[in-house]
Amino acid sequence: MIPLEHVILLSAVLFGIGTVGVLIRRNLIAIFMSIELMLNAGNLAFVGFARQYAGDGAHAVVLFIVVLAAVEAAVGFAIVVAMFRNRGTVNADEVNLMKG
C-alpha cells in the first residue's frame, strides 16, 4: 500500500520543479515542457486522491487535463513558430510587443 502523503509529496515536488523551470528558463520550448510537468503533477494528485477515496471520477478529470495539455501544446507551438518566423527568436525575454 502506497501512502497517500508520499504521492501528494511527489506531486508537490514535481510541481515545484515545473514552476522553477518556468521561472528560470528563457527558451519558450523549455517553458512549455515545464508547464507539462506541472500539469502532470496535478494529474498525479488527482489519481492519488481518487485512490484514497475509492472513486474514479477523478480519472475522467485526468483525461480532460490530458486533452487540455494536447490543445495547449498545439496552440502554444503555433505561437512559438509564428514568433520564430517573425522575430527569429524563441527567447521569452525578447518578446515585448505588448510592452508600452
Binding site: I2, N43, G48, A50, L63
Partner: peptide
C-alpha cells in the same frame, strides 16, 4: 508517472 498511475490502480489513465 504512467507506472505510478498503474500502481495507484488507474489502469486506463
Amino acid at each position: 508517472l504512467a507506472g505510478i498511475f498503474a500502481l495507484l490502480q488507474a489502469h486506463f489513465v
